[in-house]
């Protein structure tokens, strides 16, 4: 029987297990509401390195090291790494894992990368192509500011719709069907672009993609919001979340009571001055690897829909007046099967 259902969804016959997760975050994230869920909190965003880029690669390297150590296996047991970041040519990831002797797939899905890695990883496991794979994603506030916005020391004001790139890396090991939690369904997103041009309002650019993927997921699987304990997007922030809710309502689904966003959870907007919320590949990655995974292990939720969102732009495309295409991928994580 085909595992592909509806238009964009895959239902796994033998859902792969999320064996273990690891998360490392920067000092600001370590002062946020989710601090107690993270494995390592840095005191210095440079982490003893000479550049922000090197620091981000170290995040990648150490989170992978940590997750392998926590799972009590060896790097030789891992058949593939699926990883990505926001830096040009994925240097944070490639430089970070160059000393591991593990086959590597580099991914760019902007801030949706964590889901992309988990989806491809789960498919690889379900397809019988590997016993263990790692999905990893990272971002660093300072390297992102440098590449996408302004030098750190420039005295500028951020608009209220702007988000704050999370410094952090999250890594998961996905393996064959074993203990919960499991990845049971994935709904791969399409690129959706409703003409938003403002790179300081990425929540607005990504909200239509998130809404599209969530609605498609319900249609493909026949499930409804009632089937989930939590529906959590990656980094829509306050503005994007509001917009996504409104868009989803148009399709007669009401998810308001169970809907949240990693970018909203990770910072305290009142005291941490993060405006629209957290963003970046690291935002959904560390929120999943820390908060969501651990609370699923505690059975706080039995079934969640995790939807990392990405704004697929570059500084050059923005300067050329291009609009910002958005993408969102949905991953269903459940504690019980059948």
């Amino acid at each position: 029987m085909s595992k592909h259902i509806g238009n964009q969804t895959i239902k796994f016959d033998l859902p792969p297990s999320i064996i273990e997760t690891a998360s490392i975050v920067g000092p600001k994230e370590g002062k946020g509401p989710l601090a107690r869920y993270f494995d390592t909190i840095l005191h210095d965003p440079l982490w003893g390195e000479k550049s922000w880029e090197k620091a981000e690669s170290k995040l990648v390297n150490k989170s992978i090291e940590k997750v392998i150590e926590k799972a009590n296996i060896t790097p030789e047991d891992i058949q593939y790494i699926f990883a990505g970041d926001l830096l040009n040519q994925l240097t944070a990831s490639t430089f970070g894992i160059r000393n591991y002797d593990i086959p590597f797939f580099g991914l760019f899905g902007a801030c949706s990368t964590m889901a992309e890695g988990m989806m491809l990883g789960a498919m690889t496991i379900d397809g019988g192509f590997a016993d263990y794979v790692i999905a990893e994603a990272s971002s660093h506030f300072c390297s992102s500011e440098k590449q996408f916005r302004f030098p750190l020391e420039l005295g500028t004001q951020r608009p209220l719709t702007a988000s704050w790139t999370v410094t952090g890396s999250g890594a998961v090991i996905i393996g064959k069907n074993n203990n919960p939690p499991y990845i049971t369904y994935i709904t791969t997103g399409k690129i959706v672009d409703l003409g938003i041009k403002d790179p300081m309002n990425m929540g607005a650019a990504m909200a239509p993609a998130a809404a599209d993927t969530i609605v498609t997921h319900f249609k493909d699987t026949g499930r409804t919001p009632n089937d989930y304990d939590l529906i959590i997007t990656g980094d829509l922030g306050y503005v994007g979340k509001e917009l996504a809710l409104e868009l989803i309502k148009k399709y007669n689904y009401d998810i308001e009571n169970i809907f949240s966003d990693c970018g909203i959870e990770i910072f305290d907007a009142q005291t941490q001055d993060t405006h629209a919320g957290g963003s970046g590949c690291g935002c959904s990655a560390v929120t999943f690897c820390g908060y969501l995974y651990k609370e699923m292990k505690n059975n706080k939720w039995k079934r969640i829909l995790f939807i990392p969102t990405g704004a697929l732009m570059s500084p050059g495309s923005t300067q050329q007046g291009e609009t910002i295409p958005g993408i969102a991928h949905a991953v269903v994580i459940e504690n019980q099967l059948g």
């Binding site: 440098k146 302004f150 030098p151 750190l152 020391e153 420039l154 005295g155 500028t156 004001q157 951020r158």
Partner: peptide, 30 residues
């Protein structure tokens, strides 16, 4: 300077100190 700039916006960008900031901040960054 970036903290003052965050508070004051154009108040710190327009004067000549803002010009100095706009030259030195990328010099540090790069």
């Amino acid at each position: 300077y970036d903290s003052i700039g965050k508070y004051a916006g154009a108040g710190t960008i327009v004067p000549i100190t803002g010009f100095a900031n706009s030259m030195v901040s990328p010099a540090i960054e790069y």
